[in-house]
Amino acid sequence: MTPENKISWFCTYTPLEILDAAGWHPVRHFGDPDLLESADEMLHPAICPYARACLSQELRQEGPHHAFFVNSCDAMRRLYDVWKEEFQQDFVYLMDLPRNEGVWGRKLLAEEFRHLIGVLEDHSGVKITAQLIQAAGMAREEARLAYLESAKGLKGRARLEAAMRFQGGTEQPEPSSRKGRPVVLTGNLLNPTGIITSLEQAGAMVVWMDLCNGDRSFASSTYVEGDDLARLLDAMAARYLEKHPCARMQDKGRHYQLLVDRVRSEGAQGVIYASLKFCDSYLYDFPLLEERLKQEGIPLLRLESDYGDGHVGQLLTRVEAFIEMI
């Protein structure tokens, strides 16, 4: 990898195999949780702290600042706007993402893929074929399976850090000897040194992380085969929209059922719902999930993160009480 072909990505709906096929080296951007205030001149303080952390870190780094955004929420759209304005010499792209997996959603996403390929070919001069995408998809599938294999036995912070290393391009999971009450963690994106560390200190053992930067990224395969580019992209669009969904997507029932199934299969005794501040998608999602888990008899605790998590000590008592209850 060279700085010239490194491209940052932020959302698990990013079509990594297309970027790979175009010669890019996609690396997940996690930002710096300790630098949030540095972005306040360009992004409102009452906006997603993950977006602020990414911009703050990038402003301190030398270029290039190539980046691929998915129009998944207002915060990502605002981050794209600032990035595009601030780094005008770099490749900065925004892809739309439908909210449902129906016929029209698949058609829209397939068309987004086709448009992306055209832009990438114009930018790099590389002809992107079905064969290149298929080969890149196979490599991504092998990496996904490698993570799932290497994550066996990993819990809590060690498991999240392993997932982030795979997304960041380094595959070096470390063993974990943590013990505690098994729980499933669900939410959007968390800092491994924040809330998760407090959960471990309180006696929780996180056995599965339904997070954007955790196990959710590896839960579903997007690999497809085919020599015809149009059909390949149609199949890819269907696979992406059939992935384990997040709160932003419309099919809440499928998301909740997958979560309940995971709780049962992992032998978890409860669910901890931890989301970033100012995230409307997850604020709207919580009451619906709370009702579903109540019907299933699964205990639930909601926590909120500012990504830096300097306040996590204040949450320790609540988590300890929840662990004692379950």
Rank of each mutant, 00 (worst) to 15 (best):
R165K: 10
V126N: 10
E17I: 06
Y93H: 13
W104F: 14
Q131I: 02
H244K: 12
M95L: 14
Y93G: 02
L97F: 11
R28W: 13
A204P: 10
L43S: 01
G168D: 06
T12D: 07
I7D: 01
F286T: 01
L185W: 03
L233K: 05
E266V: 03
M42G: 03
S8L: 12
P33Y: 04
L190W: 09
L288A: 10
P299E: 11
N188K: 12
G313M: 02
A53M: 07
V119A: 09
W208T: 03
E101V: 04
H311P: 01
E174Q: 13
I195K: 00
G23F: 15
H115W: 07
E320M: 02
G31A: 05
E200Q: 15
Y223R: 05
G270F: 14
T14L: 03
K152Q: 15
R140N: 11
R318V: 00
L233R: 05
R140F: 01
S281F: 14
E141V: 00
P33W: 01
L109M: 10
Y50C: 09
A202D: 13
A162Q: 09
T317K: 13
W9I: 07
F87Y: 12
L301G: 00
I272A: 00
A235Q: 07
P26Q: 05
V183M: 08
S150A: 10
G169K: 06
F68Y: 07
